[in-house]
Nucleic acid binder design. Sequence first.
DNA 1: TCGAGCTAAACGAACGTTCGTTCGTACGTC
DNA 2: GACGTACGAACGAACGTTCGTTTAGCTCGA
Lengths: 244, 244
Amino acid sequence: MRGAERTPVRGVPRPGRIRRPRAATPRQEQGRAEILGTAAEFIAQQGFHGMSMRALAAATGRALASLYNYFDSKEDLLYALQSGAFRALLESGRHAIDTTTDADARLYAFIANHVGYVTEHRDVMRVLVHEAAALRPEQRRELRRLKDAYFAQARELMDALYDAPLGERERATYSLFGMINWVFAWYEPARHGSPFDVARTIHRMALCGLRNGDTAGAEVDAVERALRAAPNPSPIRPEVEKTP
Amino acid sequence: MRGAERTPVRGVPRPGRIRRPRAATPRQEQGRAEILGTAAEFIAQQGFHGMSMRALAAATGRALASLYNYFDSKEDLLYALQSGAFRALLESGRHAIDTTTDADARLYAFIANHVGYVTEHRDVMRVLVHEAAALRPEQRRELRRLKDAYFAQARELMDALYDAPLGERERATYSLFGMINWVFAWYEPARHGSPFDVARTIHRMALCGLRNGDTAGAEVDAVERALRAAPNPSPIRPEVEKTP
DNA sequence: TCGAGCTAAACGAACGTTCGTTCGTACGTC
DNA sequence: GACGTACGAACGAACGTTCGTTTAGCTCGA
């Protein structure tokens, strides 16, 4: 018996309890949105477990206990944040795609919409990437559902463009997501052009992923052989000097 | 005065104190490596603040206090993990690049090395992406230094290949990092081919990012105008139904 | 125009638990 | 005897959550 106690919850909520119906008045909704926005900043910086309800309450000008008028629990708050963001992405993506029928342009619309979202709501994007393992299974299932639906959008667009082998298309689509998601980690408007410039670069690279591989030459094959022969030498490699 | 107290540390170490010289015997080094490996799993799943020293001790078969024979603090442990991983990446990348002189093949070597590292040390990669804001400024500075050095490797390789405008090359290089970093989020050996297959796909897409944009047609321009006119409709969008 | 009655929201205080860290000590190996 | 490592116990702080009560904003009959 080690590692032990799954879900070592701290505050010990009372066991059986009927919770607030949450009538969703405009007041409620505005309060929830404000709290969620601030929570996104905290979680983006310190991670979910690094954000304390006390700090969140202070930052939103409320007392600690007041937060529980808006969300049942810290976990509930995270779920609301993530599912709301995915729903927004999904819906705006769907809308963007519908602005044209040209296959190339539809892919561009999807990319530009996503990049726009990332640049406008950077903190939220950081939270989405963190892949909350702190949620209950049903909540995680719902998030997975949303994520899959969003991924399916992209895959359909990619599939409509070329008929490369399945594996190749999948790798290219995942790589496309890598590019558009990673934008949150580096993009600065003053240095890297407009979000549309970013979208155009990514669009071009994504299209290339669908062409059957023809660029690989003999040198590339040689490199692969060399790397296969001598795999990564060190797993973590001890640090050399310590910070004082 | 709100938001208040930066760094609300919990354990309050004694203020001035000379710490262990840490002679780095083989015994020590092995213990540190084992603890770091387990810590990577925990942090990857629950985040840095979500991992407790007690759980880490239990998982490595040690008593809680024993961990402090290997690391000065939890923070020190995170720093050792991150800096060690970056150093390993940097070194293996340098080695991989040196296996050839062909510009194309050198880029491929860099990509394949990174993808190989990600697939072999997935948990460590998750930790690196989490971008530890929990560290002290000097530690963060050192990590930034390592990260920049690694990025510079890639940029040199990209610059050697084409002479697209600076902005375009930068966006393409960052997007390349998006692709190779994101691998940790989706790659499954049984479904997505070998790491080298992944590397080849990404290599091809990266090369395309360096070609001056010529694919953009009138339809793409029209889409951009449409998106500019009607920006993202909703920031977070409230969830519709609740999980029971 | 009023004020009684209701409800949602805010609040301070406290709960029990878990946190990171340190202490003093005991066990082994040179 | 000295040193490196292991350990149980304890410290104070911070955690998420709940409680009972007070406040603010509304409806509605008089």
